[in-house]
Design a protein around this nucleic acid. Sequence first.
RNA 1: AUAGUAGGUCGGUUUGUCGCUUUUCCCUUGUGGAAUGGAGGAAAGUCCGGGCAACGCAGAGCACCAUAUUUCCUAACGGGAAGCUGUUUGUGAGGGCAGAGUAGCGUAACAGAAAAUAACCGCUCCGGUUUUCCGGAGUAAGGGUGAAAAGGGGAGGUAAGAGCUCACCGGUUUGAGUGGCAACAUUCAAAGCCGUACGUCUUAUGGGUUGCAAGAUCAUGUAUACCGACGCAUGUAGGGUGGCUCGCCCGAUGUCGGGGGGUAGAUUGCUAAAGGCAAAUGGUGACAUUUGUUCGAGAUAAAUGACAAACGCUUUGCGCAGGCAAAGUACAGAACCCGGCUUACAGACCUGCUAUUUUU
RNA 2: GCUGUUGUAGCUCAGUGGUAGAGCACUUCCUUGGUAAGGAAGAGGUCGCGAGUUCAAUUCUCAUCAACAGCU
Length: 130
Amino acid sequence: MNHLHSFSKPEHLCGEKRITRVFTQGEAFIVYPLRVVYLIEPKNQKESSTVLVSVPKKRFKRAVKRNRLKRLMREAYRLNKQAIIEKLMDKQLQIQLAFNYVSDEEMDFAMIEKKMKLSLQKLADKIDLL
RNA sequence: AUAGUAGGUCGGUUUGUCGCUUUUCCCUUGUGGAAUGGAGGAAAGUCCGGGCAACGCAGAGCACCAUAUUUCCUAACGGGAAGCUGUUUGUGAGGGCAGAGUAGCGUAACAGAAAAUAACCGCUCCGGUUUUCCGGAGUAAGGGUGAAAAGGGGAGGUAAGAGCUCACCGGUUUGAGUGGCAACAUUCAAAGCCGUACGUCUUAUGGGUUGCAAGAUCAUGUAUACCGACGCAUGUAGGGUGGCUCGCCCGAUGUCGGGGGGUAGAUUGCUAAAGGCAAAUGGUGACAUUUGUUCGAGAUAAAUGACAAACGCUUUGCGCAGGCAAAGUACAGAACCCGGCUUACAGACCUGCUAUUUUU
RNA sequence: GCUGUUGUAGCUCAGUGGUAGAGCACUUCCUUGGUAAGGAAGAGGUCGCGAGUUCAAUUCUCAUCAACAGCU
């Protein structure tokens, strides 16, 4: 069985030091409602892509809504990550990603998936330029 | 039948595809496979109480905070049950709120004569003047103001009046009896002639602090914290006793020995518990006892999901009806664990009771 | 996870139970040839929301909502 669509623990971006590094050294762009922060560097760990998603408490007060949006974003990433993974494998690079949700309104899965595809395409273009 | 009220219960189901995570097992040992478990009645707010943990422990007084009707329940509580008294709300079943003490002190705007040792108008008597009126004394029945006006209405009494006196009634205090575990209720007698609300104050009881991001262990690794002995000093400067006072305790620098702070990480704490369900017994009840049976989240930038389809339920529209179509399907997500309280909630069900209408 | 503070006019803030105020801003008028400054007058408040105590609540009590801050 192939595992093109998995999203297991090693693919999460965690640990205070690594997260701080991404946010201080990484670059960012916005594909509304997603703000994408990324850091591309030569490959030195097993996974070629590690990701975190976040929804600010300030915009969504209820935990249920925050959890749902995070799940939708994760799901959208999981189903579409192949777009960048292969390019990274070819060039022997790794990427660390952070997705911030910056809208004030809840969106459904179709919308979020569309935006996620857009932002991943944008990342793929950047990888090609390197 | 409709509307309501009190208490209790539930709060979607099935299938497919792709995923997340706990535990166990297997192998060809890795982006592997299999099996298994995986949010709530409020997981929420963090308002109380407890367990558990670390630190502290020399006390006394004051201060501070909380609580305050009775009896019971409970591990405990500021929670609950059943009562008592008052008040308020509802046609009603019911619901809300308050309930230690009152000796002293303070406040009660505006209006009103006066907001508690009262006297503007009025009433009565006396003196002056004699047309109205002026001055003095008495009085608190009547008037108006106000949220609130000095027990109630009646008879006697008087110049006019007044608990001034009398009987009855209301309330207060004291004593005695009856009922009740008690709060209290009720009866009799006596006294006295009797206002209200809030605050302050007083009394009683309780309160060490911090919280699983507590704390423990491991690997890496080193400031020189801390401890002991000796020496100095002889309780001096200063410090601690988490706000103050008294009291108590420690106590400067040196040498030797022991020892290991902080940061980031991993493991642990971590989930079986005052647990759920049923029956019987006791109790008005909260609840307790016994017996039987049953279940099993443990993540850590944080899992329990996404998509699709079908069904169920609710509402609306169309239709005589079967049915068809559309819309909706709540509040909300564990983060150490329990007991409560509070707040949010589509819809459904059960039991008791109430009101209205109709029928028998 | 734990803890605290604040909410009053468009803005910044007063207001210790008795008719809600100040400064700036706004409107009208005066002044000036005109503008600014100055002067006069005026408008603008569910006192975050909901209960309770009281004769009376911005103020006292309870619950709730929002904003902000702190510890880690």
